[in-house]
């Protein structure tokens, strides 16, 4: 299959203490050189805990955050200045908090018409038709169009957010925790809606979440992120049934499942690495049960392991 989106050595540092007299600026290393390819028509899941850089990565993919280094390639083409302006036509973003991604002082119709006017350049008549079509696609009633965002529940607002993203007629949707603010029963509705929209609109998804189970139900391929780097990447089934990286295994075992008893899989007094002074070796070293002296010295590179699974680990789980 064709590669539609590629991240090449994406890296993002956020400067701290922008002092006038201080020469050496401290930096937060949010994303530390991430590379992957997303194939046309697939759902690419990105999973990781808070602070692992998954949201920063998502924002770089859609052009909301400028990478410090590296680049985003669309269909193997680098983006120059003029193409960057067209980026929203190809790749759109669905926000985590559905209510706060809608301007409180605009009706839903006004919100929906923005991408249709500015990106699609549709006439007013065509806009009206398109809005109706999109609202039907996300299962919302048309009478909602003249209401304001605060009148909606989380699930409804997220459908509006999805409809707004679709209004740009993109080929790729980056979904940043699209269901984490929703209740379980509504979460299932939205996830099912997303998978039917993907078929109807011929979309490719980058699906970001902290919830392994949610990522598993939707994804074809998955990347596991920790501390700004990809730890493991490969077909979803491989990753979730036979995790090779100790971190993936820890994540999978920590997720509470119905009918399982509580077990602790890691030492309780582990400390997370400092994002201002990243360690030389593997970032997961202090929490890892498989670690050796080498892990402290050399940061493992992402390498092919087996069955199309790539891992960044010196001592993978057999």
């Amino acid at each position: 299959m064709q590669t539609i989106l590629e991240a090449k050595n994406l890296l993002k540092n956020f400067p701290l203490n922008r002092g006038i007299f201080r020469r050496k600026k401290a930096q937060i290393h949010a994303v530390r050189s991430v590379s992957f390819k997303v194939k046309k028509g697939e759902i690419f899941g990105v999973v990781g805990e808070s602070g692992c850089g998954k949201s920063t990565l998502a924002r770089m993919l859609v052009g909301l955050t400028e990478p410090t280094n590296g680049e985003v390639l669309l269909e193997n083409n680098k983006l120059d200045k003029s193409q960057k302006a067209r980026l929203p036509k190809v790749i759109q973003y669905v926000f985590q908090d559905p209510i706060s991604s809608l301007n409180p002082r605009k009706t839903i119709r006004q919100v929906m018409s923005v991408p249709l006017t500015h990106l699609q350049k549709l006439s007013e008549n065509d806009q009206e038709k398109q809005i109706k079509k999109l609202f039907k696609a996300v299962n919302l009633q048309e009478e909602f169009l003249d209401r304001y965002p605060h009148e909606f529940s989380g699930g409804q607002a997220q459908r509006i957010g999805i409809a707004r993203a679709l209004a740009a007629n993109p080929r790729i949707l980056v979904l940043d925790e699209p269901v984490s603010a929703l209740d379980v029963s509504v979460q299932a509705q939205v996830l099912n809606l997303l998978s039917s929209l993907k078929k109807d609109f011929g979309l490719t998804y980058v699906f970001i979440s902290h919830d392994l189970a949610v990522v598993e139900t939707v994804s074809d391929r998955v990347a596991v992120m920790y501390f700004g780097e990809i730890m493991e990447i490969g077909p979803a089934q491989e990753i979730f049934t036979r995790p090779k990286h100790p971190y993936t295994k820890l994540l999978a075992e920590s997720a509470p499942k119905i009918g399982t008893t509580l077990q602790l899989n890691e030492k309780s007094n582990t400390e997370l690495p400092d994002p201002i002074h990243p360690p030389n070796g593997c970032a997961f070293f202090p929490r890892c049960n498989n670690s050796t002296a080498k892990c402290l010295e050399v940061n493992p590179k992402l390498r092919m392991h087996e069955n199309n699974v790539f891992i960044a680990c010196h001592n993978p789980i057999e």
Binding site: S153, G155, Q187, A188, Q189, A213, T217, F240, A252, I258
Partner: peptide
């Protein structure tokens, strides 16, 4: 029973989830 059915569970692979129509 139906709410438990909506909960995505790890280890079941890519699939359609059961959902409850409507809102509380």
């Amino acid at each position: 029973s139906r709410l438990i059915g909506c909960v995505p569970e790890l280890g079941k692979g890519k699939r359609e989830l059961a959902s409850i129509d409507g809102l509380p």
